[in-house]
Computed example of a mutant assay.
Amino acid sequence: MSAGFADRLLAWYDRHGRHDLPWQQASAPGKRDAYRVWLSEIMLQQTQVATVLGYFERFVAALPTLRALAEADEDTVLALWSGLGYYRRARFLHRAAQLCVEHHGGELPRDFDALAALPGIGRSTAGAILAQAHGLRFPILDGNVKRVLARYHGIHGHPGQGAVEKELWRRADAHTPATRVADYTQAIMDLGATVCVRSRPLCGDCPLAGDCVARRDGLTAVLPTARPTKAQPTRGTVMLVLRDDAGRVLLERRGPQGVWSGLWSLPEAADHEEAWRVAQRHARLDDAQPLAPFVHVFSHYRLQVEPLLFDRATARRGIADNPDLRWCDAADLAALGLPAPVRSLLLALDGPRQQGLPLAPATARSRRTPSRKQA
């Protein structure tokens, strides 16, 4: 079974697979750079190849080696990652590089258990690194592979359930060949990403269609079984945009817990009254201007954001003494890790200012926004 499966998949890959991805470049004949493979695997978790390409090129241009990553400060790493989301991946990547320098001679270990023990590297990612960088026979089971195997074998149940995942791992191992492991690993990921896609799979182009259970039984729309749905809650926050006459914006480093942990973001408050109290602790100011609200969707909830602009604010003393608060100009913003919606908000604000245009509020002044005297 595995030979036929792998042979058909590799023959398809030779004709239709992706062979020119930047992390596939050989560092020596028949050998790929394990650092680049590792970086690509972490970036590709929950992110598509088309999105990753530009980020990958910028990241390796700035930090071309594992040692360079280990020696970089966290702000540099998060700035290069900014926009990819799931920032815990970047922090784990950074910490894993430091551990490799401390314990593995500045290289990713070739031992599976040692590699899988590093932050952010689980069983599938370790297998993918060892298979693609060193040609070692280890199966993988990312989201694309789960979809291919669940459909091909007609495996019901959500892949995140223990028994279902165990069966998928058994199938993944059975199909992994002893030779051309790097090509096979890329092939099965490519098939899931380009042919056996989540919606409307291109079964006519699939080399495995002849004995695929889901295609035979008309189950491609229901396999793999979807995760049981939960109502997604909505939370609200007021983001404070404090900007001085020089155009600098006050940023605050978020704590180690919660979303966007460790990134620089805008100060926040639960409502407009609290926003005034927070703003007045940091600056002297006269008025506030509500901007267009927006929603940012996380994996487990929706965040309703109300930005509140305090323009021409005057910084109070003490900000410079707080390492988690800083006034930032455009150059600073480019060098820091900011959440994508915060960066977009600040870029939208800066456009009219650079052109010498007045900043028009996106909405009329909110009745919930008290004046300085009311606060």
Results as ranks from 00 to 15, higher is better:
L39Y: 07
D271P: 08
D332T: 01
L130E: 10
R123M: 06
T363C: 11
G162E: 14
P159T: 04
C206T: 10
E74Q: 11
A335W: 11
V297W: 11
Q257K: 13
D14Q: 13
C203E: 04
A11R: 13
E57Q: 13
C196M: 07
P358T: 11
Q304L: 14
V60C: 02
R368I: 08
L191I: 14
D113P: 00
A150W: 04
P119D: 05
H19W: 08
G192F: 12
H134E: 08
F298W: 10
E273T: 14
R372C: 11
G17L: 08
T51C: 00
R88H: 10
D244R: 05
L357I: 06
T176H: 03
G210D: 15
A96H: 02
P64I: 10
A334C: 08
A330H: 11
A231Q: 14
A116I: 06
G122Y: 05
G122M: 04
A178C: 02
C203V: 07
E274L: 15
S124C: 06
A221R: 11
A61C: 04
Q289M: 15
G255H: 12
R123G: 10
I121E: 06
P201K: 01
G192L: 10
L39G: 11
A348V: 02
H16S: 13
A79Y: 06
E274D: 11
A214P: 00
L250H: 00
R343K: 15
D244A: 10
W327V: 03
Q45P: 13
Y184M: 00
A11C: 03
P323V: 00
R253G: 02
F138W: 15
D173H: 12
A6M: 02
T237R: 12
A96V: 08
A178T: 09
K373Q: 13
Q46T: 15
L285T: 14
L251D: 00
D183C: 03
G105E: 06
F56V: 05
W169C: 10
Q355H: 10
R302E: 14
S199D: 09
L308K: 00
G258Q: 08
W38T: 10
A375P: 00
D14H: 11
D7S: 11
D33W: 04
A178S: 06
P307V: 05
F298R: 10
F59Y: 14
D324P: 01
G218Y: 06
V213C: 03
S199F: 15
K373G: 05
K230I: 08
L208G: 04
A116V: 05
C328G: 04
T76V: 12
P29Q: 05
R281I: 00
R277Y: 09
R171I: 09
H104Y: 14
G255T: 03
L250A: 10
